[in-house]
Amino acid sequence: MTTDVNDIVETIIAALVKTLPTPVTVTTETSITRDLGLDSLAVMDFVMVLEDKFDVSIPMERIAEVETIGDLARTISELRGHA
């Protein structure tokens, strides 16, 4: 995994921990829908926060393909053109 993706993972985790109601250990392998108990709308709302942080727009069909935190970081990295 590239440094860029690692940095993105760290930013995602920091932002996510702030939004979750209960403290959870989040890693690259954490499944966003299964392990965090977020419904699809909550995921889309969280993605909006990330879009602002990284100044990208993540199309809905790309969000649908995302399973883990690592997937999300790679998608953001690709959209920023650093893939």
Partner: peptide, 12 residues
């Protein structure tokens, strides 16, 4: 939005 092949972007 699910039906279209276009890219879909949500705003607040």
């Amino acid at each position: 939005a699910k039906m279209t092949p276009a890219q879909v972007i949500r705003f607040r």
